[in-house]
Simulated scan of single mutants.
Amino acid sequence: MAEPLCRYCARLGRVEAATVADHIVPHRGDLDLFAGELQPLCASCHSRVKQVEEIGGYSGAVDLDGYPIDPRHPNA
């Protein structure tokens, strides 16, 4: 409730209500990681964008000019 908007959408200048409390570091069943920091995401970003980022190692999101916003992106 402290951060009601999706953090990923906000990076792109969009306003979307957060509906999921996402573990920033994927826990994959590890109880120590499960207690870690959370971030607010909308369902779309959680089920699509975050999953692609976890698999690929970087976000494919771009800014309004078409440049990658993730410094880990190979074209950044």
Score class of each variant (00 low, 15 high):
2 A>R: 14
34 F>M: 15
14 R>S: 02
70 D>Y: 09
68 P>A: 05
10 A>W: 10
42 C>R: 04
21 A>Q: 07
29 G>M: 06
41 L>F: 04
7 R>Q: 10
62 V>N: 03
43 A>H: 11
4 P>L: 07
44 S>P: 03
37 E>L: 02
74 P>Y: 04
65 D>A: 14
1 M>I: 07
71 P>G: 03
69 I>N: 00
28 R>I: 10
18 A>C: 00
10 A>R: 15
29 G>P: 09
7 R>H: 13
9 C>T: 01
57 G>S: 06
41 L>P: 00
74 P>H: 00
3 E>R: 14
46 H>M: 03
37 E>I: 12
38 L>H: 12
63 D>C: 11
16 E>F: 00
17 A>L: 09
33 L>F: 13
68 P>N: 05
7 R>P: 01
30 D>E: 13
19 T>P: 01
30 D>P: 08
49 V>Y: 08
40 P>W: 04
23 H>T: 10
55 I>C: 04
53 E>A: 05
33 L>T: 11
70 D>P: 07
38 L>W: 09
27 H>K: 10
58 Y>S: 00
23 H>W: 04
66 G>S: 09
21 A>H: 05
8 Y>P: 01
50 K>S: 04
65 D>K: 13
46 H>V: 03
44 S>R: 14
23 H>G: 04
28 R>L: 11
15 V>W: 06
14 R>D: 09
9 C>L: 01
18 A>M: 00
40 P>K: 02
27 H>R: 12
64 L>H: 09
72 R>G: 06
52 V>P: 02
61 A>G: 10
18 A>F: 05
50 K>E: 03
39 Q>D: 10
44 S>T: 13
5 L>W: 15
13 G>E: 05
30 D>A: 09
20 V>L: 04
4 P>H: 05
